[in-house]
Design a protein around this nucleic acid. Sequence first.
RNA 1: CGGGGCGUAGUGUAACGGCUAACAUGCAUGCUUUGGGAGCAUGUGACUCCGGGUUCGAAUCCCGGCGCCCCGACCA
Length: 416
Amino acid sequence: MRQSQLFTKTRREAPSDETSKNAQLLIRGGYVHKEMAGVYSYLPLGRRVLEKIERIVREEMDAIGGQEIRMATLHPSEPWKQTGAWENVDVVFKIMSRTEKEYTVGQSEEEIVTPIAQEYALSYKDLPLAVYQIGQKYRDELRAKSGVMRGREFTMKDMYSFHETQEDFDRFYAVAKEAYLKVYERCGLTAKATEASGGSFTKKLSYEFMVLTDAGEDDILYCDKCPYCANVEITKEKEGDACTRCTKSGKLTRAKASEVGNIFDLGTKYSHDFNYTFRDAEGNQQYPIMGCFGIGVTRLMGVAVEAFADEKGIVWPESVAPFAYHLISLAPDDGPVRAFGDELHETLAKRGVEILYDDRKGVSAGEKFADSDLLGIPHRIVISKKTVADGNVEIKERTGAEMRIIAKTDFLSSLG
RNA sequence: CGGGGCGUAGUGUAACGGCUAACAUGCAUGCUUUGGGAGCAUGUGACUCCGGGUUCGAAUCCCGGCGCCCCGACCA
């Protein structure tokens, strides 16, 4: 894509009221536009990042048998009253129509998905079942904070599973846990499956998925030798203690972390609330055991910014970057450098390389470099009179200081 | 929801209770410039968040809203 056509622009300064790193950089880079506290619009670059994350999430959910659906966002109040959430969950938005009918908007969707499953999954032969969606969620937070990290509207992947037995739920829970770890790893983040309270959902433990970052709002304790990790809220252990789960005599380390997902055993709460039963192999009526599995997509984007940004701007992991390459043309005029850049851009685009081409005229080299650092695209290609004369391009990584000059033809063949 | 802070051109800042609200940046036009946020010139852009009050006079002081940020609480 040509940067001269990109309708957003970078800004030298962040609005003074944004103090979180993720919001400052995302706004300065033109990734997002703030609508109000806790609500952001995602502009072309931001949308591309979200789509990258969503694609990874989708692939991993599909891989464990999840079926993607899209549930309604506007909900009738009745199912929410039926489960008690209308009265008991204070983040539920309550909307009154002009005819005084009550509605809500999705903040989690057990109330919608359970009646759907009830209509189709009536036999043990239909189970297990896992459905998910990726969409907007709305929570009436008393205090939105930390930029895109805790908003009143955000994008979440929410999956719901239905099982015949506790054993089958436990099996799927373990599978989902592994799939989650894969999602974060593919997004370039190191996450730990962290034992945590199940909140109002369940008395059982749940797993929170925590990315280690100093910007995190949670404190966790993790073992240096085994996968054990717990939120400090639920454990009396402290840093330096011997790990009790460990056969390798590991020690616990305390760290700041940011939650990017959570999985719950819902038991039969919702199947009871909706009187949802299936027939087992003996013809008896049974309540399915349900699970709920969430990943905060917009939050994941914010965490990636927080975790990797440096003093010059954003540093995207390759897998979620809006573009893989940033081609910067230092062409003073419509001469050979511009022609070289136009042709290189077209060649790469035709090969399916995701590339942003800074073809802007009348913008100084310094400004282009500063913008490129701010946007955080992993690979930079610079072309100028110097490089073009010899048919070369200059390659530099966003995270590296050194650049190398190679022949354009060698560069193209290195892409395979 | 409790506590604290802040609301002035698109953005960042300035302005003792007193001239036509200033500077930078951005944007527009022209000329020059092109390897780390270029230069000159001319323009453009503000009901100083809203509503009351005090005063000869309010961006400035007082009261009440609203908004935004931070700490806490909360966090399906």
